[in-house]
Each structure stands twice: as structure tokens, then as C-alpha cells.
Design a protein around this nucleic acid. Structure first.
Length: 204
DNA sequence: CGGAAGATCCACT
DNA sequence: GTGGATCTTCCGA
């Protein structure tokens, strides 16, 4: 039902650009009082830490807002942006590097009805409406700043083995919304299941 | 201390 | 395709 065991801590103790493609096909499972929710992860982006101009950890920048980025791999980094949206990241590496993977999109697997309601959708949604974007995914799964700094596996949030994905199924391209980051904007650190309808825009 | 911009989404033209 | 919503953080004066 929830597709296998939770991923072990060692899974997250790698570079973000290794973890990001490996998270595709995994299940992100959320247990709320109203019921269980889960999505299959179909799109991710890697942020490489202090050496990455697009990262919140660029040049080792450290503020109250991004403090959780420096926790050990397997921790949760949630930030609030544009005055109204949350974005969910998984910290990677041993810790202290500021590396993380942004979970950009998921395909509803369990609790579709509850997630539609959380998103304010009444009618049958089109692909991507429920969790086809980083802020949509957070709204669908009830992810907010109260989870910031927790371990994956705590806070009724976990990631399980999910479904196997082959290298041929993975598309790769530049990250979204980081035009300010100079040449780093072109780094191919966005990963998605090739042609999957729930991937966010622009399509890879 | 003011202003600008952001790892976004939605409604409208 | 464009702009508005809405608020935290950063940087320059």
C-alpha cells in the first residue's frame, strides 16, 4: 500500500545530484488525522550548497530561515516564498554542506480525494493540478514550516522505496526559476520521469 | 531604513 | 503571455 520500507539514513548521505534522480519513483507518505496521503515523486531538483549560486546556502550563507539546510542528510528543509507558498526539500550529504533536493512534483497515489480538498479543487483535476509543482505538492500534503528541521520519518512524513525507475526513464535539464543565478541557471540539475503528465512546467 | 526580488501559482486577456 | 497576491530577507544608502 505504501510501497516498501522507508529509505535508510545512508540513502541521503550522498551528494544532492546523486540523491535527486534516485528519489524519482519513491513514495512520499504523509499521515494526517484525516487519513493517509501519498504521492509518487516524479520531479526533483538538486541544490549543491555553498558552491551553487542558486542555492540558499550560496557562499555558506546562514540565516534563521535556512538553518535547517545545514542539518545532516535526511533532514527536512521547508521554506516560505513569495509571501504565500511553501517548498519542501530533503537535506543531503553528511551535514554542514547546505546541500538539498527540492521535491518539485508528485503523482497522487493514496488519499487523492483529501489532497484535492486541501488544494481547493472541486472537480476532477487535470494532471498536475494536485501536486504538479513544489508549492502545490506542499499544499496537497499539508507540509508547512512546522516540519522544518525534522528528520524524514518523524512528523508523520516519510519516503519509501516506491517503484523502480530505469536510467532511460529519467529526463534531465536546467532548474526552474533560478535565472538570477548566472551560469548556474543552466546546470542540468533538474530531474523528472520522462514525459510524465504530472511534471510541472516548463516540461522537460 | 527603504526598496527590491524571490527554488510560485492563478486568473485574466 | 502578463500581472497580482503577499511577506521574508538582503543589500545599499
Amino acid at each position: 500500500m505504501e510501497a516498501g520500507r522507508p529509505l535508510p539514513p545512508t540513502f541521503y548521505r550522498r551528494r544532492a545530484d546523486a540523491v535527486a534522480p534516485d528519489l524519482l519513483g519513491r513514495y512520499l507518505v504523509r499521515d494526517l488525522p484525516a487519513g493517509r496521503l501519498a504521492v509518487k515523486i516524479v520531479e526533483t531538483e538538486a541544490y549543491l550548497g555553498s558552491s551553487d549560486p542558486a542555492s540558499h546556502a550560496w557562499k555558506g550563507r546562514r540565516t534563521a530561515r535556512n538553518e535547517a539546510l545545514y542539518l545532516p542528510g535526511g533532514s527536512v528543509y521547508v521554506f516560505f516564498v513569495y509571501g504565500m507558498h511553501h517548498c519542501f526539500n530533503v537535506v543531503t550529504g553528511p551535514g554542514g554542506e547546505g546541500e538539498a533536493v527540492l521535491i518539485r512534483a508528485g503523482e497522487p497515489v493514496i488519499g487523492d480525494e483529501l489532497m484535492r480538498r486541501a488544494r481547493g479543487l472541486r472537480r476532477a483535476p487535470r494532471p498536475g493540478d494536485v501536486a504538479g509543482g513544489p508549492a502545490k505538492l506542499c499544499q496537497a500534503l499539508g507540509i508547512d514550516l512546522t516540519l522544518n528541521g525534522m528528520r524524514i520519518g518523524a512528523g508523520r512524513l516519510r519516503i519509501t522505496e516506491g517503484e523502480a525507475v530505469t536510467a532511460e526513464e529519467i529526463a534531465r535539464g536546467p532548474r526552474v526559476g533560478v535565472a538570477y543565478a548566472g551560469e548556474a541557471a543552466a546546470w542540468p540539475l533538474r530531474f523528472a520521469l520522462r514525459g510524465h503528465p504530472h511534471v510541472s512546467r516548463p516540461r522537460l
